[in-house]
């Protein structure tokens, strides 16, 4: 139910982004954001607040098809953040992902980190909007210079495409004081904007639309993701170390195919 809503939002936003509402605007960027904000969050107020959420992104992307994004949630607010929405204003589909924390996120006071890689179509503001349990919205914004990432062919080697398709790797990264894990999914995440050069038709969209991350059966995080996530979707997230390190991941493609993986080792290296 909720997923359907997001999906239709994704589509309507895509149309909205491609259609200027009326001819002129004093500040097109502000106008774009205002329309996007209305579409995703309704009339709710959003506060820029680096005390709650911080967004790290390169000011100029090296490769617009792989722009690394890091979201940090302050430790003293971590337990109260229930979700983070990642937006890229000027992308054909601006709603990149929604990260929803579950009970297995724990209630500790460590800083929370989420990392992923996104495609960017043109210069844009990138935003992370954290929603706290009291319903308030807190935002961090970064401007990134990048272009062409949405139509970039993937992979670079056109013969390497199907190797390991659907493989899900879950790695624990340096489990020293705080837990940090990585989820890698071998999937082209076709966004419908890349051309098949032989047929000269657009490759149909088929992307990972949802990822469920569980620790010993309890939800750590559910991710709803769109076409702005780079091919071979890649996520890193921190987790409280005082919980099970047994992490299971189920990713769901647009065609409802499921891809599963789990961590094989405890958090030591």
């Amino acid at each position: 139910m909720r997923r359907r809503t997001l999906k239709s939002a994704l589509i309507s936003i895509a149309i909205l982004a491609a259609t200027p509402q009326n001819g002129y605007s004093a500040d097109p960027a502000a106008e774009l954001w205002s329309a996007l904000k209305q579409d995703v969050f309704g009339a709710k107020a959003i506060r820029e607040d680096s005390k709650v959420v911080v967004l790290e992104a390169p000011s100029r992307a090296e490769d617009a098809a792989y722009v690394p994004i890091r979201i940090k949630i302050a430790g003293d607010r971590a337990a109260s953040v229930k979700s983070v929405t990642l937006l890229i204003d000027t992308n054909p589909s601006p709603l990149a992902a929604v990260f929803r924390y579950g009970p297995a996120a724990g209630g500790d006071k460590a800083e929370r980190v989420i990392e992923t890689r996104v495609r960017m179509d043109s210069y844009s503001n990138v935003r992370a909007v954290a929603e706290t349990t009291d319903g308030q919205l807190h935002m961090a914004t970064a401007f990134v210079k990048a272009s062409g990432g949405c139509s970039a062919p993937s992979p670079k080697d056109s013969d390497a495409g199907s190797k390991d398709f659907g493989k899900v790797v879950v790695r624990h990264l340096n489990g020293d004081k705080a837990g940090l894990a990585q989820v890698m999914i071998r999937h082209p995440n076709n966004n419908g904007l890349q051309m098949d050069p032989i047929s000269r038709n657009f490759i149909p969209a088929n992307f990972i639309q949802g990822i469920s991350i569980r620790r010993s059966g309890d939800t750590f995080m559910d991710i709803e993701s769109g076409i702005s996530i780079s091919s071979d979707p890649n996520y890193r997230f921190s987790f409280s170390p005082d919980w099970s390190h047994d992490i299971k991941v189920v990713a769901r493609g647009l065609d409802e195919t499921l891809f599963e993986g789990q961590s094989t080792h405890s958090a030591t290296q």
């Binding site: 895509a14 982004a17 491609a18 617009a64 000027t90 054909p92 179509d121 043109s122 210069y123 210079k145 990048a146 272009s147 062409g148 990432g149 949405c150 139509s151 904007l193 051309m195 000269r200 657009f202």
Partner: peptide, 21 residues
């Protein structure tokens, strides 16, 4: 070198580009 500030690359522009390659 991909540099920005070109014509806005909307989905429609992408589609248009394909037919006029």
């Amino acid at each position: 070198e991909p540099v920005g500030h070109g014509p806005k690359f909307s989905r429609r522009a992408v589609l248009r580009g394909a037919s006029g390659l």
